[in-house]
């Protein structure tokens, strides 16, 4: 096995900081919207159950406190999640894949293909309904270094998965 390990000029290295992140599927905003409505609905149902059948006399007097609470919380969620989603994106390079996430606390994780141990494409119930898939890449570096790229077109996800596992040499060991 050969490998070269000459000293490198750090300034000549390719850098990751390029504006070439591929955004996730725009249509996924619908799924987020639907999820938010479902969450709001569940919270309101919980409130109504407590209001009519719960053993809490104060709730009749101060019913507006939980309602305003739910309103503020879901208002924030409705505003925040689409914004955070728009920032998510990935970059596929010759030897690694980069995933960017986070609106305020931003994270960019790079996984070299040679360190991918296992890869899979998953689809949740909403994903199946709307036609989106998630690409999962697992490494030996623990759960924080595993990548999970959501909101991909199922065809894209499968292609990506094939590409990555081919690069990782996972196919040969099958």
């Amino acid at each position: 096995m050969t490998f070269s390990n000459a000293n490198l000029d750090v300034n000549l290295l390719p850098t990751v900081r390029q504006p070439e992140f591929i955004p996730l599927e725009k249509g996924y905003h619908q799924v987020i919207l639907l999820e938010n409505f479902i969450a709001t609905g569940l919270l309101l149902i919980g409130f109504l159950v407590l209001y009519f059948w719960g053993d809490l006399p104060e709730i009749h007097q101060f019913w507006y406190v939980p309602v305003i609470g739910i309103g503020v919380l879901m208002g924030f969620v409705f505003w925040f999640r689409p914004k955070a989603f728009s920032r998510k994106g990935y970059q596929l390079r010759e030897r690694d894949i980069i995933f960017r996430t986070g609106l305020w606390w931003q994270t960019e994780t790079v996984i070299p293909f040679v360190r991918v141990q296992h890869s899979e494409v998953t689809q949740g119930p909403l994903g199946r309904l709307f036609g989106y898939a998630t690409l999962n890449l697992y490494t030996a570096g623990g759960s924080k270094s595993d990548l999970s790229i959501p909101a991909l077109h199922p065809e894209t996800a499968r292609k990506l998965e094939q590409f990555v596992s081919q690069k990782a040499g996972l196919d040969e060991t099958e």
Binding site: L13, R95, D96, V110, P112
Partner: peptide, 20 residues
């Protein structure tokens, strides 16, 4: 930070030794 990250990636991706 960026240089360190790129340097680590460069080594990981070109060094042929098995990590385990």
């Amino acid at each position: 930070a960026e240089k360190l990250r790129d340097y680590i990636l460069q080594i990981v991706e070109t060094d042929g030794r098995a990590w385990m």
